[in-house]
Design a protein around this nucleic acid. Structure first.
Lengths: 194, 194
DNA sequence: CGCCGAGTTGAACTGAATCAAGAAACGTGG
DNA sequence: CCACGTTTCTTGATTCAGTTCAACTCGGCG
């Protein structure tokens, strides 16, 4: 494994959760490298999620399929963690797919290894707590947006705050992230662009 | 304070997070009693959330107001924790209201006191992690339901799994929890009951 | 060159919102 | 304990956002 990847994870952890060299050194060691070609799956519906992935490069979409259409729950890119976290936590089969939107490089840690950290290291539980709290906050904010904004408002906000993302990703992916169908986003784009 | 309330919290913690007498005894001590009349607010929009509440008796609705209509995020009843948790965690003003649906008795712990536990007790971080993970799972499941079911399907499921709740709460509260307006739930009820 | 997935457009449709009005239930004070 | 005013619930008519289905275009790629 390119040690630069480990350094990237180490830096991310230090910046996000504080400098804890005694924890981060063994923690980073516990990750192994995994690469996913564009459109390949980190996990599929029905499988058990055994990993928490740190995205070194690339990006992923988390979605489930209903009536043959993809329903996106979130998108994650470099320097973020991704996982079918409900499956990971509950040890139940995943309801969702996670797919690489680009060729994606990850460092991943196995469930059993993370549990060892939680059992043996006090600080790791604090990190786990902060991580889960962050996910909860993100989900709540998204729910508030869905309950209070129209699809067009959500699209305009995305354009304003994540315009690179809108440029790089296909319409169908953006539409799914916004909770609408590609045809609808296509119409919204005509309105908004003109 | 009625010591029975502390016992109830102690029992809940032991059953949910495991028997940890050395942690639970001082932890339960750190809560104080607070009572909320029906329709009173545990917290209002714009205020900073300083408490995490354990509901001893009664129930609450967490909602924000958009275009003059209440948008419910969740309902919590006896033997559960409730808080404007995003405000509590981020120390930013609350976007939401929490209102007592019935006369409601709570034990509540102050933010500063909880932080002391997190700093001084290793196990408390594990509990905080498990708690946040549980909230994240609940939010995710709710988002999946919203993205894959119609309002009528969500109502039927609620009837099936939480019929007492549907009986006890006003239509407008149920409607808000289902993400629709009272007029729409009224129409759905006509369909479903017949 | 031909094909195939991605994006766009149109027309009809649908679930739920909106606005308005009336009926029922509630609680509050006299 | 009743009377009154205020919510709450229901119903109807209309509108609207987004879906559905189908047809067509475009750009890339084998």
């Amino acid at each position: 494994m390119d040690p630069a990847y480990s350094d990237q994870l180490y830096r991310y952890l230090t910046q996000t959760f504080g400098p804890k060299p005694d924890l981060w050194k063994p923690f980073v060691q516990a990750f192994d490298y995994a690469e996913y070609p564009k459109k390949s799956f980190l996990i599929q519906n029905g499988e058990l999620e055994n990993y928490l992935y740190f995205i070194v490069e690339g990006g992923t979409s988390s979605f489930f399929v209903h009536d043959g259409r993809e329903k996106c729950l979130d998108l994650w890119f470099a320097d973020h963690f991704v996982s079918s976290y409900v499956s990971f936590l509950t040890r139940q089969p995943s309801q969702i797919f996670i797919q690489a939107l680009f060729p994606t490089k990850t460092l991943r840690i196995h469930y059993d290894v993370l549990q060892e950290f939680y059992q043996n290291s006090d600080e790791s539980n604090k990190v786990g707590r902060l991580f889960a709290e962050g996910l909860y906050i993100a989900r709540t904010q998204r729910e508030i947006r869905f309950l209070s904004q129209t699809a067009e408002e959500r699209y305009r906000d995305l354009l304003q705050h994540q315009s690179e993302l809108v440029r790089q990703l296909p319409v169908k992916t953006i539409a799914s992230y916004l909770g609408i169908h590609p045809e609808s986003l296509s119409r919204i784009r005509r309105q908004v662009t003109l």
